[in-house]
C-alpha cells in the first residue's frame, strides 16, 4: 500500500514536528510513507475567503502531486475535508473536464490521520505512551465535515499512561475559522476565551486536537492569558513512546 503524506502548508511552515510525528508513527506501524515534494496546500484559505479562481490551480496542483497513491494522509481534519468535500465541486464548477476528473479521482483517497489509522489500517492501539493529563477538542471540520466521530478518542484511550479528561461543551467551535479569526476578530476572540476557560477548567496540562490551526488560535490565547497548558497535535501524542517521548 502506497501512502503519501499531505503535511499541509500550515504544518509544513509552522509545525514540522507534527509532520515528523506522522512519519515516525506510520513507520513504527510498519508502513512506509512518501512525501511528494510537489505538494503545497489545499487552497482552503482562498476558497473559504471567496477567492475561488486562486483556489482552483492549487486544487488541481494537489491532484497532480498526489495522483497514483493508495491513500493520502493529512494531519489536519480541515484540510482533509477541503480536499474530499470541496475539491471535486470546485474543479467541476470552475475547471476544465480533464483536471476535474483527476481531482475527483484523488479526493476520496484522502484521509485525516485518525481515519487512516482506524478505518484504513485497522488499528486503535498504536502502542503509544504519553503519561500526561490530556483533554481533547474535536475540531468542527473533523466532527461535522469528515464525521470522524469518536475515532480520535478511541486512539487516545488506547495510549498508555494517558489520563483523558472530558472537555465541557467540546463540540463548540473554538472560533478560529481561517480568515474569520481576522475578519471577525472580536467574535473569534470571544469564542476562544470561552473554549480556553473550559480547557483550563479540566485541569489538563495538555490540549489535544487534530488541527494545528485551531490549536494555534487556542494556544496563542492560552499563552497570552498566562496559562501553561500545552497544545499538542494528536499525531505527536500517538507517535510518542517510552523510548522516544514527545
Amino acid at each position: 500500500m502506497r501512502i503519501a503524506l499531505f503535511v499541509t502548508c500550515v504544518n509544513d511552515t509552522l509545525f514540522p514536528d507534527t509532520g515528523r510525528a506522522v512519519v515516525r508513527l506510520l513507520r513504527r506501524l510498519g508502513h512506509d510513507v512518501e512525501f511528494p515534494e510537489a505538494q503545497t496546500c489545499c487552497g482552503q484559505m482562498h476558497f473559504n475567503t471567496g477567492y475561488r479562481d486562486q483556489a482552483l490551480p492549487i486544487a488541481e496542483g494537489f491532484a497532480r502531486a498526489f495522483a497514483g497513491y493508495d491513500a493520502v494522509v493529512a494531519p489536519s481534519a480541515s484540510c482533509a475535508a477541503m480536499v474530499r468535500d470541496w475539491h471535486p465541486k470546485l474543479a467541476a464548477e470552475r475547471g476544465g473536464p480533464r483536471p476535474a476528473a483527476a481531482v475527483a479521482d484523488v479526493a476520496p483517497r484522502v484521509f485525516e490521520l485518525s481515519e487512516l489509522l482506524v478505518d484504513v489500517l485497522g488499528v486503535t492501539d498504536v502502542g503509544a505512551y504519553y503519561p500526561h493529563r490530556v483533554t481533547y477538542h474535536p475540531t468542527c471540520h473533523s466532527l461535522r465535515m469528515l464525521r470522524v466521530g469518536d475515532r480520535p478518542l478511541r486512539l487516545l484511550r488506547a495510549v498508555r499512561g494517558l489520563d483523558l479528561v472530558e472537555l465541557p461543551d467540546a463540540a463548540e467551535c473554538c472560533g478560529f475559522g481561517g480568515t474569520f479569526a481576522l475578519k471577525n476578530a472580536d467574535v473569534s476572540a470571544a469564542m476562544a476565551a470561552d473554549k480556553v476557560a473550559n480547557v483550563r477548567g479540566t485541569g489538563a496540562g495538555t490540549l489535544c486536537a487534530a488541527d494545528n490551526s485551531c490549536l494555534m488560535h487556542l494556544g496563542g490565547t492560552l499563552t497570552r492569558t498566562g496559562s501553561d497548558v500545552r497544545t499538542v497535535h494528536l499525531a505527536e501524542i500517538l507517535a510518542s513512546t517510552e523510548e522516544d517521548p514527545a
Binding site: F35, E37, A181
Partner: peptide, 18 residues
C-alpha cells in the same frame, strides 16, 4: 494585529518540514 491583539503567534521553526 487583529490576531495578536488577543493571541500570540508562534514564530516559524528553524526548518520547515519540507
Amino acid at each position: 494585529h487583529a490576531w495578536t491583539d488577543t493571541r500570540d503567534l508562534p514564530v516559524p521553526p528553524r526548518e520547515s518540514f519540507r
